[in-house]
């Protein structure tokens, strides 16, 4: 379980279309600026969010992203929960491997996104869906 206390009301963005992926990026960017992540960390988090939102749309058949600001007492951060009720991921280790793809992409979405954030948690069940929680902390 990832540490941290929620601050304020999380904002939720549905992910049903291409345009929603753009909206997720914008929401994450605004939140990252608000908690004063460095420019590089903002860029990394927004990029990770873009990859994961696209996964939610393409592989999960759509879902949502819930963006909130969190604190562990010392630092503030941005937490995003991507949730879908799609087919789930049968082989998680394989899905997290660089270059592995079932969707004709580059296979960097999941593995790349994991490298770009500080905390990465994935829960998936075949036939039930996938929930990915990521957090980026200020330094």
């Amino acid at each position: 379980m990832t540490a941290g206390v929620d601050l304020g009301v999380p904002a939720t963005q549905a992910i049903r279309s291409d345009e929603d992926v753009v909206r997720v990026r914008q929401l994450v960017r605004t939140t990252a600026v608000a908690v004063r992540l460095s420019l590089v960390d903002q860029t990394k988090l927004v990029t990770a969010a873009s990859e994961l939102a696209r996964n939610t749309l393409i592989y999960g058949g759509g879902g949502s992203a819930e963006v909130s600001t969190v604190s562990d007492g010392r630092r503030r951060g941005v937490r995003i929960v991507f949730a879908d009720q799609g087919p789930g991921i049968p082989d998680l280790d394989l899905a997290l491997t660089d270059g592995y793809t079932t969707g004709g992409g580059l296979g960097l979405g999941l593995s790349g996104a994991r490298r770009l954030v500080d905390d990465f948690d994935i829960r998936t069940a075949v036939g039930e869906g996938t929930t990915i929680t990521v957090t980026k902390w200020s330094r």
Binding site: L39, V40, Q42, T43, K44, T47, E51, D98, L106, L108, S111, G112, A113, R115, L116
Partner: peptide, 14 residues
């Protein structure tokens, strides 16, 4: 390309 974008691209593995 912005510096932060270049850093992120490399870390992403692209």
């Amino acid at each position: 390309m912005r510096p932060a974008v270049a850093i992120t691209l490399v870390e992403l593995g692209l």
